[in-house]
């Protein structure tokens, strides 16, 4: 019917979004992957194939920091999975209880840390945990646990765990909200049917609700994965670009920043920076693929 006439309005509707998205996101993404294959020889851009990656994974000057950052990043991720998501699910389960009073109030209050910037969160916790100010030690003293206090952010052994927990504190609102939404969408009849069969209270949660919200748990897991492997701000705000003490809180984002921009005695290297970014891209891509093809398609979905 309209085949003879070219529908220009479709092009006009699509063009701005496609142009901005392609020019500022997709093109630089591939260009960064391409730059990872080059290096600087006497100020001339020279192709060296996978040389940068060889240095990154094998040359002790780079690899030591890289593997440290990667390992820390996995710890950062596992702490989120083990602490943030279960707490988020538990909070959502309580909030979705039909007779609970003040649910909206709790929900809004618990979500507040999520809207704060990393700078605020990083510094606020740094001050609170600081031995100089003494809020944390005096609060522990009040419950008789003062001996447990240590300057957590300043100790290599604890700093990463502490920052991970701060990050959990900040972002617990996101799994909470998504799971809450999933729980609300479970029809009343299913729960009533369960009740007739004698499944109530906590049993109803484990046997009926949890299997039904598994797809949402999958989504929060992949969101956590992507967010964690791309994290930077909190560590930078709390510990600076050097991710101290002694790189114990270094993750891929801070490592990328240092590699790209340099710090103190080391000069920035955009090509090595691209190689780090390329590695992050590969990790995130693998994670997303595992989720899309390995988990999402196999998950049993129930028609509600």
């Amino acid at each position: 019917m309209q085949a003879s006439r070219f529908r220009w309005h479709i092009v006009i509707f699509l063009a701005p979004a496609v142009i901005v998205y392609t020019a500022v996101m997709i093109f630089p993404l591939f260009n960064t992957l391409r730059l990872a294959l080059y290096t600087d020889v006497d100020q001339v851009r020279t192709f060296i194939g996978l040389g940068n990656f060889n240095r990154l994974f094998g040359d002790p000057r780079w690899s030591e920091q890289f593997w440290n950052a990667l390992g820390n990043n996995f710890k950062f991720f596992f702490i989120h999975m083990l602490v943030q998501n279960p707490i988020g699910i538990a909070l959502a389960a309580m909030l979705s209880h039909p007779r609970l009073r003040f649910a909206a109030l709790y929900r809004s209050a618990i979500f507040i840390p999520t809207i704060l910037s990393f700078v605020i969160v990083g510094f606020a916790w740094k001050l609170i945990l600081s031995p100089i100010w003494g809020i944390a030690p005096s609060m522990l003293d009040a419950v008789g646990l003062k001996s447990l206090f240590a300057p957590w952010l300043g100790k290599e052994a604890y700093a990463l765990v502490t920052l991970s927990l701060v990050s959990v504190w900040q972002f617990v609102g996101i799994p909470m909200m998504l799971i809450y939404a999933a729980l609300l969408s479970i029809p009343e009849e299913i729960l009533e049917a369960g009740e007739i069969d004698g499944i109530t209270g906590i049993n109803a949660f484990w046997k009926i609700k949890l299997p039904l919200i598994l797809p949402s748990i999958g989504i929060i897991s992949i969101l956590t994965f992507v967010g964690n492997f791309n994290a930077f701000d909190l560590i930078y705000a709390a510990q600076g670009a050097l991710a101290g003490p002694n790189f114990s809180t270094d993750i891929l984002g801070t490592f990328l920043y240092r590699t790209f921009f340099g710090f103190q005695l080391q000069l920035g290297d955009p090509y090595m920076g691209s190689a780090v970014a390329g590695t992050m891209f590969a990790i995130i891509l693998v994670g997303v693929c595992i989720y899309l093809f390995g988990i999402q398609t196999r998950m049993r979905r129930y028609q509600l």
Partner: peptide
Amino acid sequence: RFKGNLVMGLYLALGIMIPIRIGTVAILEM
């Protein structure tokens, strides 16, 4: 309905999962 509708949709959806930060080096250069 037009040719490439689905492909265009998928192309635009790619960026939901991939953080734009990965392309920082080239973005700064640009």
